[in-house]
Amino acid sequence: MAVFLRRFRRHTSGMIGLLLVLAVCAVALAAPWLNRGINPLAVNLAASAQRPSADYPLGTDEMGRDVLMRVVAGAPVSLAVCVVGVLLALIPGIWIGLLAGFRQGRAGTILMRGVDALVAFPRILLAMVIISIAGPGIPQLMLAVGLSSIPIFARVMYVTVQSLRHRDFVQAATALGAKDWWILWRHILPNAVAPILVQASLNIATALQIAAGLSFLGLGPPPPSPEWGALIDAGRTLIRQQPMVIIAPGIAIAITVLGFNLLGDGLRDTLDPRLKG
């Protein structure tokens, strides 16, 4: 652990990623207190579509709502959707990969073939199919983002288990008569933490883009939810008068995605230098 921390601290882009992620999380957590007494949902038509000024640092949208406040209020929504989504995918994904990889039967092979077919299928389309079944809304968006990333975790876990099961320490445990669940729990899982952690970080970045994309297409939470993708969609009518309505949430998405991508790359390089790309 100490070695990992020392190595990670020397990884410049990984540290930048961590700082960006921490900053976005801090904004998301503090969002309810950052609103300077302005309700981000309150409509004020007298101040509609204003350009940035001292009163409104990033201007206002078509309903006269403060753009900066809307973006800040969107942080917990957007972040929650992708983080909860990925957490939802972790456990089923890990289990599928673990079982298919460890018990090498026909069932495992068939399961992984299915997973491979799903991995090749674009996640946003998978998420759209789920939304078409579940309907629009924030919990549904989490579900769509989560279910669509299960195959990727299953794949990563499967590959990890494959590479571990013939290693000496697993063979030794088998020879000593250890039960399967003990080997999985004690020997395989701890060694799979690193690739899963890396994948989780990279996956949150993709999940955020997918969630924002779905909201942009009008398949996310209904208005006036300040989800970032939905903000961009709503701002399209103001593209000429007040482009900040679109630019600001886009930058917020980009910063968060960049943060989780850099963090994931940094984790990969320091946790498992063999995978360094």
């Binding site: 883009q209 924002a212 994309g213 993708g229 961009i232 998405i253 995605v257 960049l258 991508n261």
Partner: peptide
């Protein structure tokens, strides 16, 4: 890799 595709399109 980081910029949302629809945002780039609009810009």
């Amino acid at each position: 890799i980081s910029l949302p595709v629809f945002w780039v399109g609009i810009l």
